[in-house]
Amino acid sequence: MSATTTRPHTPLPTPERSRTGPRSRRWWRSGLTAYGYLSPTLLVMLVMMAVPVVMVFAYSTLSNVIMVRDPEFVGLDNYATLLGDPIFRKALGQTGIFTVTSVVLHLVLGLTFAMMLNSGLLPRVASALFRVVFILPWVFTASIVVILWQLLLNPNGVINYVLQTLNLISTRVEWFSNPALALGTVIFINVWAGYPFFMISLLAGLQGIPSDLYEAAAIDGAGWRHRFFSITIPQLMPIILAMAMLDFIWNLQQFPIIFLATGGGPLNATETVATYTYNLAFSKRQFSMASASGVVLFLISAIVALFYVRHQKARD
């Protein structure tokens, strides 16, 4: 039966029919109702998002706000001072290292664990049990994660003991206070705490890959390497890209793990833009400089977010 011969069934008053009536009034009423439902959200977003974003941009162009009664307009001076500060530039670089390393390792660990869980070689119960254990790190809040690792990585702690017993290290290591190791330690903790989110999404993605793709490849005699690179990875690509961009934004802004583990130290070895901004505002009380630094972080996040939204739109 062709589409033209089927009568469109319109038993309910649809927009089509109401168009004969005073359309714009209906349209406005529907619009008003919608905005009524949106009003709690819009109120919160106006007061707690739009106003603060305008404020922080304004702050960043003034001489020290909050601490000074009549701050003066200084244009982009704060940004110039900021970019001239070698510690800020160091923080920018370390934010890059922290973010890229974390995202890559989240992806590698998340994918490895997801593939092991999805291998189909495990009994159901074992698979469910391992899944819960693998997700576990994600349950803990940052402040507990850091305390836990401070205990484990204490110079007299269990990890140093195990490494020493296995003859992997000769003296007990100061994981947090050695400037050469601190950034790596913080990244490691951040990787531990963050990979489960990747794992869960990738696991869902793996389960969505049609199994006949693999069967066809097996008939053609394709090895695991071939199946991985020509089926698994391409099929997961949309999820990997979306997750990587989201994770990139989150890690760029990561604050509690770094702040609590090292406070940006020792000797700024773990300073990132987030800890740098916090220290400017809340220990040095330079709120205008902190605003400028916060705006820089915001702009970097916004660029990545723009790519993310574009990518999502392209998929739709």
């Binding site: 922080v56 706000v65 916060g294 915001f298």
Partner: peptide, 20 residues
């Protein structure tokens, strides 16, 4: 707006929040 507000860093919002 709903999608993009998620990209605003908490640390950036904290400074105006403090005043607000």
């Amino acid at each position: 707006v709903v999608i993009s507000v998620q990209a605003v860093p908490p640390i950036t919002l904290l400074i105006p929040y403090f005043g607000l």
